[in-house]
Amino acid sequence: MKKKHGTVVRWDSEKAFGFIRCPDIPADVFFHLRDYSGAAKPAEGLRVMFQDIHVGGKGPRGLSVEPARNTIINAPSAPAPLPVETPLLPASRPASRSSSRWQKRREERPLWIGLSLIGFWLVLWLVGIGMGRFPWVVLTAVVLINLATFYMYWRDKDAAVQETRRVPEEHLHGLAVIGGWPGAWFAQNILRHKTVKQPFRSIYWGTVAVNTFALLAWMLWPVLR
């Protein structure tokens, strides 16, 4: 299917959706972040290519959305000579493999940090159970809390797409602080939800610190006492 061209006329970074205006389609085309692929983040005024479908009576929806490729213009056979005073700019060098490899490692760093924290958190639980500070049954409660947290993130993500009532952020932070922060971390990275809003991210990492330090303090309390 041949892709159409258009321009992003509206983008909501918090709800992760927007609309594309295309001269070939009478109505603006809805698209979601999960239907978008490209190095540059969606923004108003961005030229894009997409495939459109019509789902029921909800209007057109864009799929496989990506930034529009630059049009290549053939150079004339005999270019006009430049004036003597015009300086010639040096040709830009292509990005080296080392720089692209460094950029990839930089993007993967937050994932390794999150996974390392989750691994440390699980070790704390296992050590605490081995020391007799927690009963084994507490692991069942921890698993249920994290599954519930992941579900609430999915529900909030779906509500953002459907423009229905959202899950209050206080509920998401409450689940995280009582032990559901690993489930919230996986939901943020898998569903690509709540990853842009900086105040929310700051509070979330605060709940991670509170939960981890509280767990560590409870384990070490007999020794410290």
Rank of each mutant, 00 (worst) to 15 (best):
S202L: 13
D12I: 04
L115E: 02
L89D: 03
E108H: 14
L111F: 09
W205M: 13
C22F: 04
V55W: 03
I73C: 02
F120A: 14
R61K: 14
R192I: 13
A160Q: 07
V9C: 09
R10C: 00
L33Q: 06
V210F: 11
P222S: 09
R105E: 09
R192L: 14
M152H: 05
P81D: 09
V142C: 04
T7Q: 09
F19M: 09
L175K: 01
E107N: 02
E85W: 15
R10P: 01
A187N: 10
G180F: 05
R166A: 02
Q188D: 03
G130I: 01
G59M: 03
A95I: 09
T195S: 08
G128V: 00
M219S: 01
A160I: 12
W112Y: 12
R97G: 15
H193W: 12
P199S: 08
V127H: 00
F30E: 06
L117S: 07
K15W: 04
A214S: 13
I20W: 06
A68R: 04
Q188H: 04
G56V: 02
V142F: 10
S13V: 13
H171R: 14
K41G: 03
K58C: 01
R225S: 14
D156M: 07
K3E: 12
I113Y: 03
F134W: 15
D156S: 07
R93G: 02
S77P: 02
F150I: 07
A91T: 01
A141M: 05
A91M: 10
